[in-house]
Design a protein around this nucleic acid. Sequence first.
DNA 1: GTCTATATCATGATAGAC
DNA 2: GTCTATCATGATATAGAC
Lengths: 197, 197
Amino acid sequence: MARSAAVRRVDDTRQQVLDAVLALFAERGYFATSIQDISRESAVSVGSIYHHFGDKEGIARALYQALSDRMSSRISWISARHASVHDQCRGIVETLFEMTEREPLVMDFMLYAKHKDFLPEEKPICSSRPFELMRTIVAAGMESGEIRRMDVMVASTSLFGGPIRMIVARLDAVLQVPLSRHLDEVWECAWRSVAAR
Amino acid sequence: MARSAAVRRVDDTRQQVLDAVLALFAERGYFATSIQDISRESAVSVGSIYHHFGDKEGIARALYQALSDRMSSRISWISARHASVHDQCRGIVETLFEMTEREPLVMDFMLYAKHKDFLPEEKPICSSRPFELMRTIVAAGMESGEIRRMDVMVASTSLFGGPIRMIVARLDAVLQVPLSRHLDEVWECAWRSVAAR
DNA sequence: GTCTATATCATGATAGAC
DNA sequence: GTCTATCATGATATAGAC
């Protein structure tokens, strides 16, 4: 069923705000970003912003939800495209690296922001859907014999912890070259840490 | 040279404030903590706080400095106590796990807080002294042949990235059991990721 | 649904006595 | 060095016209 033009417009307004806050939160952080800033950067009035999101926290919640959904669907898509758990996990790391280069703001907000400071009710990031998906895949790898039998949380943090630290280093500009240049080496280390063979 | 009683007292006042802000920052975050809160919890007046720290950011800077120094000296101490790089790194992970259980607030502030949001001038955490020390040790491991030759940053993030993610999971209460219960398994994975043999 | 103008309030920081 | 009282600013959120 096609959405009406009115609904389209509403979504556009919301999206304008979300695009603006992503940039602002990444640049200055949640608390240093005022509603005025958001209004100016998004070209949406303060009144409209409150109409759509209720309060400032509501904006952050909506952004978190949207980006979390986006990451989840990418991970699911990658997972479905590969047969072995090894290839699935490598594909996830590769995608995370690519996202970091192409949409650093998204990764900054998802992997680096301390959501608990401004979204106290939200589940911690490592309990969120994308991370749950990763753990599910890791668990499947133990079933199939590709990954050594151990605590699933330990295996997941071991497999993805290194790559995530590399992403953080890149976001901090500590790492000066594109992540892709280190992909093979990072993945080699990550997989060795849990591989069965 | 012995410090005078006056200096002792000054240090005590400063320490009272630092103890209070550590707890407050960990609980609510930097921005949700007001100077009034700090004054009340530390039992030090607002005027004295400003006298000693200049401004709110100065408090955070002092705390960061103090805890960073503490972590650095512990790491150096551990490093000096062990002969092989393998044992040094394992000792560091063990100590980080113990610190997380015994002083979760310290680890929360050091490994989890997003300092850039409130200390924009400070170097990113992964360029800080403790992390530099870890990289130095890893580099030494490559020299000695214990660790495979590769980019030092990649090796460091691979070795310590998993353990750090476990610490974050524990701080988020996602992990319900003490980290010590997973130490062997976590270390096994971490070391495999970079070990030469 | 969108906008401008405004109310309300809390905060960081200071002044100045002791 | 320490304290209390106060200021000035800028924030979130709302009211109400269109």
